[in-house]
Design a protein around this nucleic acid. Structure first.
Length: 684
DNA sequence: TCATTGAGCAAAAGGGAAAC
DNA sequence: GTTTCCCTTTTGCTCAATGA
């Protein structure tokens, strides 16, 4: 329900639905922020930069732009909501700013934001001073009237966000004679500069301590809001003026509205109601039974599932990277098996994770039941399953353990990143993973394990004797660590390769022949070894996916999105194409695409969905610019060599380049903050 | 054989409600 | 009012399947 307001639509309402859209508007570009977590006495200064924050920690030194979470981590704290702790100089968190702007008429957004940002600037005076000191800067406090005078004296074009990138403004950092920090800010040509040439800003002389402070810069920038306005609007027809759109409605894919989603298919079928559900609205009905009943009508969440008590007593294991911790489901929490708790203390999922020594955004993604399915995955599976008795479904998914869980705490545990097979027939198969292994290592393994191993073949078949779930992860390989002297303990991780690490330090690789082959359960044996020697304690834990060609851990960064939406100009035509046909047109707008289908600004993913290919999940490969380059290609070009392709359309011929920022573009597509005198022809 | 399409995953990020 | 917790959505990626 968002789109960029157009000129002349002042009567409409505008709002930022979240911090991301607020930052994407660039209205707060360059504004100083402070991460504050009082409880942990954490404080870190920075500046808003693009969709992130220019971090002022000792390592980043304002040279690096990081996400909110990273900014928080650099402050030495981990919370679940970083933007709740990132404050403007007036003491308002960004989250609060967004809230304050909800429902504000477009025509008032500038004033409202200005008021918010300027409100009570003394609240965080100490922070400001410390911020300045941290960057070796002297903060000069000036009156609001003085600020206004200076700002009013500026030409409008100098007050745009791009103005801040021009190397003509000196600020407090220059005054401190320490330009190191400032020069780093200038590195990408979009930050406050600190060059010796302190060109006056429309009459405001910038020299020494008379220069404009960072705070003033921010203030001046806010005064410029209308010139840089890219407001996300909420249309009045679809949303109440003063209400936040329901999250699930936001950016709702087109097809979801046109056809029922798998979840929506799970509507109440009166015929499916069992007799004992008739009392569902009776106040005497126990809580868990109510939840069970409601499950027939709507989907569960993790909390509801635990509340049913149907999983109470089930063994769970937290597994993420190297962190592991056993536990038991108890009530709505987990009976923690750490040394400290020793199954005597019920903790929340978050605490359970902390006790395991890990950190994640969704703890239940990493808390696995005995069958190897995570709590989250189980909830999804239950919600997607044909509606039936919740109890029966759970029993079907996770058969009751034979033994009292507490009596078998040290027993084997099925793998992380393993989900149950969607095909029950496949579950009944006993699978074999054939590991092509060096015969010499086999001999060595055999020698070190048992007599029976001496006849081991040149391949070792790892047999898995329990029902086999599918691989949940997309890894085609798995890591197997065999330590022959430790009873050939096998660790299988859903990583990229099966690697046997014998004590002789041989590393062998193999891969599943078929990716869809079910992932083995960890209770396994090695065929070719005698039964007495082959029952192995297995221990499966997730590992980072490895890229074979690079041999390094690949980690999603989100850089592609940032690059492409930072460099494309608003209004640039984009096309969703498939099979050389244009399916849908749109225009780049802010941090999204103005979709011609719905006339709203949507994410690339949603744009893809509007084109009818929501399941493809390849937006960047199928959204093209007017030059015929896909966004994926374009970002690749840009990330490799920024001067090899036009920053605006991705074209590669007849380019000119900016001598200052090194960005390239067609003469007609000049990067909006590069002046004519700064561009030169790029030899092809 | 190669390009395209389909499917699935992990990680990152943010929203909202509950708990403190 | 602040912090925690749980959940959903988005994005970038890989691999399998399919078809020319």
């Amino acid at each position: 329900m968002q789109r960029v307001c157009e000129e002349g639509e002042d009567e409409k309402l505008c709002s930022f639905s979240n911090v991301r859209t607020l930052l994407a508007s660039r209205l707060l570009e360059g504004v100083p922020v402070t991460y504050i977590f009082k409880k942990h006495k954490a404080e870190l200064h920075g500046f808003i930069k693009g969709d992130g924050y220019r971090c002022g920690c000792s390592v980043c030194d304002y040279k690096q732009v990081v996400s909110a979470d990273e900014f928080e981590k650099h402050a030495g704290v981990t919370s679940s909501h970083a933007n709740n702790h990132i404050y403007l100089a007036n003491g308002k968190s960004l989250h609060e700013v967004v809230k304050d702007l909800i429902g504000v008429p477009l025509e008032s957004v500038h004033e409202e934001l200005k008021a918010i940002v300027e409100m009570d600037p003394n609240i965080y005076d100490a922070s400001k001073d410390e911020s300045a000191q941290a960057s070796g800067c002297e903060v000069k406090h000036i009156s609001h009237e003085e600020q206004q005078t200076r700002v009013d004296a500026m030409p409008s074009q100098m007050l745009s966000s791009k103005f801040l990138s021009e190397p003509r403004l000196c600020n407090d950092m220059e005054a401190s004679n320490d330009c190191q920090t400032n020069s780093s800010l200038h590195d990408d040509c979009e930050s406050v500069s600190c060059e010796a040439d302190s060109t006056p800003i429309n009459g405001v002389k910038q020299n020494g301590t008379d220069g404009i402070t960072r705070q003033e810069v921010s203030t001046m920038f806010i005064h410029q809001l209308p010139l840089n306005l890219s407001i996300v609007q909420k249309t009045t027809q679809e949303e109440p003026a003063l209400s936040t759109p329901p999250r699930n409605e936001k950016n709702r894919p087109y097809q979801e509205s046109d056809q029922p989603s798998p979840r929506n298919k799970n509507v109440l079928d009166p015929c499916s109601l069992s007799q004992n559900m008739v009392t569902e609205f009776s106040p005497e009905v126990p809580k868990h039974q109510k939840i069970e009943t409601e499950f027939l009508k709507k989907n569960l969440d993790v909390r509801s599932l635990l509340r049913t008590g149907l999983l109470s007593g089930r063994k769970v294991k937290y597994m993420k990277d190297q962190a592991e911790l056993d536990g038991l489901i108890h009530d709505e929490g987990y009976l923690c098996g750490c040394l400290s708790c020793n199954y005597k203390k019920v903790v929340s999922a978050l605490k359970f994770e902390i006790h395991a020594g890990a950190v994640s955004k969704n703890q239940n993604n990493y808390i696995y039941l005995e069958n190897g399915i995570s709590i989250c995955a189980l909830v999804k599976k239950l919600n997607n399953a044909p509606k039936d008795s919740l109890r029966e479904l759970i029993e079907k998914e996770i058969p009751c353990p034979d033994k009292d869980p507490l009596s078998n705490q040290n027993g084997s545990f099925q793998t992380a990143s393993i989900a149950q097979s969607k095909n029950s027939e496949e579950n009944q198969l006993t699978q074999t993973i054939e590991i092509q292994i060096d015969p010499h290592l086999v001999e060595e393994l055999s020698d070190s394990t048992s007599e029976g191993c001496k006849s081991a073949p040149s391949s070792i078949n790892v047999m898995f004797d329990s029902p086999l779930p599918h691989i949940e992860g997309n890894s085609s390989y798995t890591d197997v660590n065999i330590s022959p002297l430790e009873s050939a303990k096998v660790n299988i991780s859903p990583g990229s390769n099966i690697a046997l690490h014998g004590q002789k330090s041989s590393v062998l690789e193999t891969r599943y022949e078929n990716r869809k082959r079910p992932m083995p359960s960890p209770i396994c044996s090695i065929s070719g070894l005698t039964p007495s020697s082959n029952m192995l304690e297995s221990d499966i834990r997730p590992v980072h996916r490895m890229v074979e060609s690079q041999g390094s851990t690949k980690k999603r960064t989100g850089d592609l999105h940032k690059i492409i939406f930072n460099i494309l100009q608003d209004g640039a035509m984009l096309f969703y194409c498939t099979s050389s046909k244009t399916i849908l047109e749109g225009q780049k707008m802010g941090n999204g695409i103005l979709c011609s289908h719905c006339d709203e600004v949507v994410s690339p993913s949603t744009f893809e969905a509007h084109a009818g290919f929501d399941k493809r999940r390849q937006p960047y490969r199928n959204i093209y610019t007017s030059s015929g380059s896909s966004l994926h290609d374009l970002t690749r070009y840009l990330s490799k060599n920024q001067t090899s392709a036009c920053m605006i359309c991705g074209g590669r011929e007849e380019l000119v380049s900016c001598i200052r920022c090194a960005k390239a573009f067609h003469p007609g597509h000049r990067w909006n903050h590069c002046t004519k005198s700064e561009v030169s022809h790029v030899p092809t």
